[in-house]
Design a protein around this nucleic acid. Structure first.
Length: 833
DNA sequence: ATAGGGTTAG
């Protein structure tokens, strides 16, 4: 059997991903089945324990050991066995083996001792490791141990090394340097390196220094060290370049990177796989994607790592389709993808939400022997949860070997985003049952699920939980809480959360503003806006949109104009939502002209905008202009919806354009494919009724494809009263009493009709019936706020001492309105009371 | 024996 060198050389890889290593090995060399039968054979050609461990069959290796008689076991078997225990993290079995080793008198063997230390450290029992270690402390075994240690243990070992004069070992020095870097103590490493004489700095210690500095964020020192090393003629190997290129990438130093690139060419490393991949990654990190592409093209024999680096480069630069295309190329070239490829490609599919391609990738994953680690599985899970495919998501979720917080989070946020709030919260509960601690992302999803259910009780439980676990300071969690209280109608609680936020970002400020507008507190929304400006953050389009919504609710034109000027002066980039809000503000504040100006200047118009502009024209009595907009829409690709026709029909109603209104009701279905709903019929029935065409109105009600609702009958009834139609009024009142039998006002309207027609008998009968049923019309009520005092009026109420004056003013108001004269003076007179 | 390629998923 000949093994590909590169594969066997990557011990690091085989240690981290034993299954994938084995699968690659099989697919390239022997074939899975052949190896499998090899394992199961019990003949003389059966593999030794050493073979099995080397090929990754750790369980089988231990089983083989259990089946053998002790006599077959030699001292050369134990390191392999201990390696298997280490990979499986099987401490108990490891201890059994140590007992056997002691019994066989092999505990002084340096190689076995090292294996034991290695095993105990990997199984997480440092105490056991130290006990072994006490028996044989030499530089050789220390070197291995140091690779697994944390800061405290590492420092103790360092002390031991110095005390026992083992410090001159260059291997040990390198591993200690590395240990300090790994434990985020770069300065300790630097001091140690400075203390080394020049002749004791070898290629490994230089490389450890350059890589470690970069890993600790000190990329500038790493670059300096590279220059220093070159001047001191340090040896350059492939690892030197991979380390320094990592530093260039981290600092985004593309020109330094290019210099290193030329060194690479000069020193003859231009065809080294490791170095080329590092070069590609360096260019990608420097956001110089063309440089990365050039490296990729120049390598003739591309390894999977290079492909992965290219895919990652495209994905990182936002060119998702470039990444997916590279994956396609990879398959065309018959390159076998691995778990890195799959994780990348799946996360690309998730970003652009292409479910179909994601499923194809999943199929590849099943077909090929690729390791399914937790990264790949989580990405797969996200694919299905985002796409709303619960069944598939559940299949992946239940087949996962280890479910971590991320996997649960994927399920919860997937449910929440697809508005399956109950499922999301059930999942949240199950996760806590599993003993996992939710993080801030999960809490944000759980809280927004409460928002979706408008369940403020559950939401405030979440609030309590968040406060206890100390996540309430997280800006995303706090924003979710704010949003929850806002949408459930508790603006004060939202404000409470807001005031406790240690860091407020623009999203929090915007949410607070929209909370106040949503809960009918536009003044406080505006106050918040001014505080926000003082806070020192720059408002974005959404902030201005929120302010404009508040202004529309207040209908204060001056403030609206001020905001309009502000956004022009500040050069805030407007978006369609902001411009829509601007148009809406001008309409609500009564300035049709300004609304029209903004509308005409806009280059991107959407349906919402057309609808509000049509409504604006309608409410300002410009029905024809609203109709003209409908024609204008036909030249665009925007399709009118049911709201468009509500605006148009009610504007016909306001302007008394009966024929046009009726035509529209027909056309909306035939020409625009919008099925008339109840609201549309109500408007048309109301329009016909107001114009006195009561029979037409009734005919329409009877011919409607939908069941007439209470609003329709109510509208017809009041038209009957206005036009003194007793018969139809009786019909409408009867229908209304079927729907709403206990509402007195429905009968009172008919009573009025009888009275006005002088049908006293019918009136008396109805009055008797109403008394029998105990029905009474609730008095109509209105109120007005003048100078911070609220005056309440009931219809027919004469308790106010100013009643004669009020009715007098009302009378002259009515007379003036009939004469179409200005009523300004009368309003002034009224206000002066 | 020490260092060294492509990742962090929601």
């Amino acid at each position: 059997m000949s093994f590909p060198r590169r594969l066997l050389a990557s011990t690091q890889y085989s240690r981290r991903y034993p299954d994938e290593f084995l699968n690659k090995f099989n697919s390239r060399c022997v074939g899975f089945r052949a190896l499998h039968s090899l394992v199961n054979l019990n003949s003389s050609s059966s593999p030794t324990i050493k073979d099995l461990v080397w090929q990754g069959f750790h369980v089988q290796a231990l089983q083989l050991y259990a089946r053998h008689t002790p006599a077959v076991i030699s001292k050369y078997t134990f390191p392999s066995l201990l390696k298997a225990c280490a990979s499986l993290a099987n401490l108990k079995y490891g201890r059994t083996i140590q007992a056997t080793i002691t019994a066989m008198g092999l505990c002084r063997d340096p190689f076995i001792t090292t294996s034991l230390i290695n095993m105990y450290v990997k199984c997480g029992s440092l105490l056991d490791a130290v006990k072994v270690f006490d028996k044989l402390p030499d530089a050789y075994s220390l070197c291995i141990v140091v690779g697994y240690l944390g800061y405290e243990e590492g420092r103790q070992i360092h002390g031991y090394v110095v005390r026992n004069l083992l410090g001159s070992d260059t291997f040990l020095e390198s591993s200690l340097l590395d240990m300090y870097f790994r434990c985020a103590r770069p300065m300790t490493s630097c001091r140690m390196f400075q203390g080394l004489e020049n002749r004791r700095r070898n290629v490994v210690s230089w490389n450890v220094m350059m890589g470690g500095l970069a890993e600790n964020g000190l990329w500038e020192s790493s670059l300096e060290l590279y220059l220093l090393g070159k001047s001191e003629e340090m040896e350059l190997v492939s690892a030197s370049f991979t380390n320094i290129l990592g530093a260039c990438g981290q600092g985004e130093c593309v020109s330094f990177g290019e210099q290193v690139h030329s060194d690479v060419v000069k020193m003859g490393f231009a065809s080294n796989h490791y170095v080329c991949t590092s070069l590609l990654t360096m260019y990608a990190k420097c956001k110089f994607i063309e440089g990365a592409e050039r490296v990729f093209e120049q390598v003739s024999d591309k390894g999977i790592e290079l492909w992965n680096a290219m895919i990652s480069a495209y994905a990182g630069s936002g060119s998702i389709y470039g990444a997916l295309d590279t994956y396609k190329q990879l398959k065309i070239h018959y390159i076998i993808p691995d778990s890195f490829t799959m994780a990348h490609v799946l996360s690309c599919c998730n970003i652009v939400e292409v479910l179909d391609l994601g499923r194809l990738v999943h199929a590849d994953l099943v077909k090929r022997p690729i390791e399914r680690n937790i990264t790949v599985e989580s990405a797969l899970l996200t694919l299905y949860t985002k796409g709303g495919l619960d069944h598939e998501a559940n299949l992946v979720f239940s087949s996962m070997t280890g479910r971590d917080v991320i996997a649960w989070g994927s399920m919860i946020s997937g449910f929440s985003q697809n508005e399956k709030f109950v499922e999301a919260l059930n999942c949240f509960r199950d996760m806590k049952k599993d003993g996992l601690k939710p993080d801030s992302d999960i809490m944000a999803s759980a809280i927004s699920s409460c928002t979706g259910l408008e369940n403020v009780n559950l939401g405030s439980l979440m609030h309590g939980f968040v406060t206890k676990s100390g996540l309430e300071k997280d800006v995303f969690v706090a924003s979710a809480l704010l949003d929850m209280y806002s949408k459930c109608g508790f603006p004060d609680m939202a404000a409470n959360v807001f005031s406790h936020m240690p860091f407020k970002n623009i999203v929090s400020w915007n949410s607070m503003m929209s909370c106040y507008s949503r809960n009918d507190l536009p003044e406080r929304s505006m106050e918040t806006f001014y505080q926000f400006l003082e806070y020192g953050l720059d408002p974005d389009a959404l902030s201005i949109t929120n302010a404009l919504v508040a202004v529309s609710l207040l209908a204060v034109l001056v403030k609206g104009k001020t905001l309009h000027g502000y956004l022009i002066r500040q050069g805030i980039l407007t978006d369609i939502h902001l411009e829509n809000a601007l148009v809406d503000m001008y309409i609500k504040s009564g300035s049709l002209k300004y609304a029209q100006n903004v509308f005409q200047k806009m280059c991107w118009k959407n349906l919402v905008l057309y609808n509000s502009m049509m409504d604006g024209y309608g409410s300002h009595g410009e029905c024809w202009k609203a109709m003209a907009l409908l024609d204008e829409m036909r030249n665009t690709s925007i399709q009118p919806d049911h709201i468009t026709f509500i605006s148009l029909l009610s504007s016909c109603n306001h302007s008394g354009l009966i024929k046009e209104g009726l035509d529209l009701l027909h056309l909306m279905k035939i020409e625009y494919g919008v099925e008339p709903r109840e609201e549309h019929y109500v408007t048309v029935v109301d329009m016909l009724g107001r114009a006195g065409q009561l029979d037409d109105a009734y005919a329409l009600v009877r011919s409607m494809p939908i069941e007439p609702s209470k609003s329709i009958w109510l509208s017809l009834l009041s038209s009957c009263r206005a036009h003194h139609n007793v018969d139809l009024g009786e019909v409408a009142a009867t229908e209304l009493s079927k729907i709403e039998p206990s509402r007195g006002s429905n009968y009172a309207q008919l009573l009025n009709i009888y009275g006005e027609a002088e049908l006293w008998d019918s009136a008396a009968k109805l009055r008797a019936l109403m008394k029998e049923e105990g029905l009474k019309k609730k008095g109509g009520c209105s109120w007005i706020e003048v100078r911070n005092k609220v005056g309440v009026f009931y219809s027919g109420d004469s308790s106010c001492p100013l009643t004669p004056q009020i009715y007098g003013a009302l009378g002259s108001l009515r007379r003036n309105m009939l004469k179409k004269e200005s009523c300004f003076d009368i309003v002034k007179a009224l206000l002066s009371y």
